[in-house]
Computed example of a mutant assay.
Amino acid sequence: MALINHTKSFSMVFLAMAILLFLAGEAQGRGLRRRGGDVCGRADYPGLCRAVVKGQKNPYAATQATVKRLIAETVAAKKAAVKGAGKYKQVLGVCLENYGDALSSLKTSLSNMKSRDKGGFNSNLSAALTDYETCEDTFSEMGIRSPLANTNARLRHIADNGLYLATLWR
């Protein structure tokens, strides 16, 4: 008899959680509609987000566009680091390695999206974000102003927006 009561209790809790998750998703959808479909309205960097997603109203597609832009801009940052390697060769070597790691994480995050693995996506996009920060920290630890400071800040901001956009997927 006790087992049946625990099963009923578990079923009720499970049902309540399912309803709450459904309602939260519906409320989130209504919030997007109230903002005119602007998926970037509550992003940390809304102007940058809008520039990256270019009018995309679907959160999944906007997130995908964000990751693809991060890949393109990380490749450009890697090229810039190679060009500037003469003066700060050792430090830029760390950045080159981190940009390579970020590219790998970003490509994996696209695979995570295809399989709807939000946890894996967040983990990989966060890893890329950490790689950009590590590049910047390497200069900071040596007391040098990074020639890639603006680039790394932009990459971090785009990644932050990508993490936000992923919260809007259904």
Rank of each mutant, 00 (worst) to 15 (best):
M17Y: 01
M17S: 06
A18I: 07
I19V: 15
L20Y: 08
L21P: 00
L21T: 10
L21K: 00
F22G: 13
F22H: 04
F22R: 02
A24N: 09
E26Y: 14
A27V: 13
Q28Y: 05
G29E: 14
R30A: 09
L32Q: 12
R33N: 03
R34T: 01
R34W: 07
R34L: 14
R35P: 00
G37F: 10
G37Y: 06
D38L: 05
V39S: 07
C40E: 04
C40R: 01
C40Q: 02
G41L: 02
Y45V: 05
P46D: 09
P46W: 03
G47E: 12
C49G: 05
R50G: 05
R50L: 03
A51T: 13
A51M: 11
V52F: 05
V53R: 05
V53T: 12
K54M: 11
G55Q: 10
G55D: 08
G55C: 09
G55A: 10
Q56A: 14
Q56S: 13
K57Q: 15
K57Y: 01
K57M: 12
N58G: 09
P59F: 07
Y60R: 14
A61M: 14
A61C: 00
A62D: 12
A62W: 05
T63M: 13
Q64S: 08
Q64W: 06
T66G: 13
